[in-house]
Write a protein that binds this DNA or RNA. Structure first.
Length: 269
DNA sequence: GCGACAG
DNA sequence: ATCTTGTCGC
C-alpha cells in the first residue's frame, strides 16, 4: 500500500532531506527561546499563589531494531516531580523507509492525542534525546518537536557536535578545571559569541558531560534547572526511562514474533 | 550489584 | 542507532 511515486525512485531520499531542511528553516522562525509557560519551577517561591507548579516532565526517545533497521520504537514517558516516578508511558512502533527524523514526528501524534483527550499527565515540559538550538543550523530535533507540538522542550545531547568552534575536549578541559567547584556547568559560547547551551556533569561520577540546550519556549537557565532536578544518573530520568522502555518494548516485540513464526524476522534467508 | 565507560 | 563483554568504583 505504499503510495510512493514510482517516477522518482532514486532521488526521493535527497528530496526528503531537502524538504526537511526547508521545514527546519520555516519552523525556526517560530522558535521561542525564553520562558513561555505559566507554571513555577521551584517551591522556594511559595508566594506564587494561583500559579501551578511544575509537576509533569515528559521524555522521548527512539530505539531501533537490531535485526531490522527499518523497525523502530518511539517511547514517550511522563514522570512526576519531585518523586521522579513514571506516571505514564506510551509506545509507537514504526517502519522507517528513511532514517530517523521523520519517525521522530510520531511523538507529535502521541502528544496531540494526549492533549485532545485532556490526559491528566500531559507533560508541562518535554525532554528530548537530541539537541535543541545546539545544532549546525540552530534547530535540532528538540526545537522541531517543540514547535510542532507547541510545547516547552529541552534538548539533551550525549555528544557535542562541532558548531561555531565548540569542541568536546575543550569542554571537558574546562570542566576539569572546575573539579573542586560545586557547579559542574559550563556555558557553551561559540566563536561568534553566541551561547549555544551548556555542558555539565550531572553526577560526581560522570566524567563525560551531557549537553543541554534550549528546545522551545524555555530559557537555558530554566532548562538546566529542570535537567538537574531529574538527574539521578548521568542521563536525566525522563530520557533514560524512555530509552530503556523503548528498548524493552522492541525486545518483547521481537521475542513475541519469534514465538509466532519460530524464526527471527530478518527475512534474509 | 549497578552505573560509567571503553571501542 | 544496536549489541556484548569486561573493568573500575561506590
Amino acid at each position: 500500500m505504499d503510495s510512493e511515486g514510482a517516477s522518482s525512485e532514486s532521488s526521493s531520499s535527497g528530496d526528503q532531506l531537502e524538504k526537511w531542511t526547508e521545514e527546519q528553516d520555516q519552523l525556526k522562525k517560530k522558535l521561542i527561546a525564553y520562558d513561555d509557560f505559566s507554571w513555577k519551577l521551584s517551591s522556594s517561591m511559595e508566594l506564587s499563589q494561583g500559579s501551578e507548579m511544575l509537576k509533569y516532565v515528559g521524555g522521548v526517545d527512539m530505539s531501533f531494531c537490531k535485526e531490522d533497521s527499518s523497525l523502530a520504537c518511539a517511547c514517550l514517558i511522563v514522570l512526576e516531580l519531585p518523586s521522579l516516578r513514571v506516571v505514564h508511558h506510551d509506545f509507537s512502533l514504526l517502519r522507517l523507509h528513511v532514517p530517523y527524523v521523520p519517525g521522530f514526528l510520531a511523538f507529535r501524534e502521541i502528544l496531540q492525542k494526549m492533549r485532545d483527550d485532556k490526559h491528566p499527565f500531559y507533560p508541562q515540559v518535554l525532554m528530548v534525546d537530541g539537541n535543541g538550538i545546539l545544532h549546525p543550523r540552530g534547530f535540532g530535533l528538540a526545537c522541531h518537536l517543540g514547535v510542532l507540538a507547541h510545547l516547552p522542550t529541552i534538548g539533551v545531547g550525549k555528544n557535542l557536535h562541532h558548531v561555531d568552534g565548540l569542541n568536546q575536549s575543550e569542554v571537558r578541559r574546562s570542566l576539569q578545571l572546575k573539579e573542586n567547584e560545586h557547579e559542574q556547568v559550563i556555558t557553551l559560547v561559540g566563536n561568534s559569541g553566541f551561547t549555544w547551551g551548556v555542558g555539565f556533569r550531572p553526577t560526581l561520577s560522570s566524567l563525560k558531560p551531557i549537553y543541554v540546550s534550549v528546545g522551545h519556549r524555555i530559557s537555558l537557565d530554566s532548562a538546566v534547572k529542570i535537567v538537574k532536578m531529574t538527574c539521578k544518573y548521568r542521563v536525566p530520568e525522563p530520557i533514560r526511562q524512555a530509552d530503556m522502555r523503548s528498548r524493552a518494548y522492541l525486545q518483547e516485540h521481537q521475542t513475541e514474533s519469534f514465538k509466532r513464526t519460530g524464526t527471527v524476522t530478518t527475512g534474509s534467508d
